[in-house]
């Protein structure tokens, strides 16, 4: 019963967060005007702002938050480690090196995105090739390979930042902290989110079994190696899509699944949709605040995800005995 109520509540929160995101900005719009501008079809300034700027932005923020949360759920199930987040396997490290290298060479936006995609794919293949062996003890090998590749990428990122011109550094830092002002591949990201989310929910029973240990899962009829591979690549796909939308936004992928668990829901058939809703609406709110609080200055959204999320999670952790 409780998960159903939570699902309903979070659906309402999602709707409210989207409306909040559409209302806020340098041209504040009351809800009535948002409705009118969206469906009135008179093509005024308000409609233009909404359709051209705010709607893509809130949709990107929601998709990005949902993708990261879902990737977090899948990786925490794959690695059976509560500290797993979408970036633990070096994917964001590879993407960051790709993006920053392109920026250093003075590449434009699309070339930068393309280069970050290349870096991410390289990291995915490298970590899988070097670290993936099926079996109970080998999951640490994958985890450690990811951490090592991440560390290597971190060093390269520092090197690239040092080599960069002074005026390039700010753009690089924004990329690193996560920024939703130039989302790429929005329709594709939504497609990935919906497709992987649906598949993961359908196969959620297997995820519950895997969380109980690999030998146990095999004894209960799960083809463990196949599942691990599917989980790895699904999480990688989600992470790449999220990176293309907003760079490496921290905190969401790690903590949203835990927030739902701390509320008392742990079965994956509920954990998956609830985490996606919570992560999506959370990122919409964080992004809206990031672009409006100090406007016209736009703050990186990654700052707000942590500033907003840390107190809430500390409260949840303290509440639960």
């Amino acid at each position: 019963m409780f998960p159903r109520i939570l699902f309903f509540l979070l659906s309402c929160v999602t709707l409210l967060s989207l409306v909040f995101g559409l209302m806020s900005g340098s041209l504040p719009l009351p809800p009535g005007e948002v409705w009118h501008a969206l469906w009135g079809g008179d093509g005024g300034t308000a409609a233009e702002v909404l359709w051209q700027l705010r709607l893509p932005r809130v949709l990107a923020a929601f998709a990005c938050g949902g993708l990261l949360s879902l990737a977090g759920v899948l990786l925490q199930a794959l690695l059976r480690n509560p500290l797993a987040d979408p970036y633990i396997l070096g994917i964001s490290g590879g993407a960051a090196v790709g993006a920053l290298a392109a920026m250093l060479l003075g590449a434009g936006l699309s070339a930068t995105q393309f280069s970050s995609l290349g870096g991410a794919l390289l990291a995915i293949v490298a970590v899988f090739g070097l670290g993936f062996r099926s079996g109970e003890r080998n999951i640490y090998r994958l985890l450690l390979t990811g951490v090592v590749v991440s560390a290597g990428c971190g060093a390269l990122v520092s090197l690239l930042l040092t080599l960069a011109q002074f005026e390039q550094v700010k753009g690089m830092l924004f990329w690193l902290m996560g920024d939703l002002s130039q989302p790429q591949g929005l329709p594709l990201a939504w497609l990935v989110l919906l497709a992987v989310g649906l598949c993961a929910t359908i196969f959620s029973g297997g995820l519950d079994v895997l969380a109980g240990g690999l030998d146990k899962a095999a004894a209960l009829g799960v083809a463990v190696a196949r599942w691990q591979m599917a989980l790895y690549f699904a999480a990688a796909l989600l992470t790449v899509a999220a990176l293309q939308l907003g760079g490496s936004i921290g905190f969401v992928g790690l903590m949203m699944p835990h927030a739902i668990r701390l509320l008392g829901v742990s079965a994956h058939r509920w954990l998956i949709p609830l985490s996606v809703l919570l992560g999506g609406s959370f990122l919409v709110c964080a992004d809206t605040l990031a672009r409006t609080l100090w406007s016209p200055l736009q703050l990186p959204v990654g700052v707000f995800t942590a500033l907003l999320g840390v107190p809430v999670l500390l409260w949840l952790l303290g509440r639960r005995r």
Binding site: G213, D215, A267
Partner: peptide, 27 residues
């Protein structure tokens, strides 16, 4: 397949490495 085997053979393992977050009934 593991699925076929699991329908005829139950295994009680000595130690489980997993983290299970749910209730006893869920387990």
């Amino acid at each position: 397949s593991r699925h076929e085997v699991a329908r005829s053979l139950a295994v009680l393992l000595q130690s489980e490495s997993g983290e299970f977050w749910g209730s006893v009934l869920d387990y």
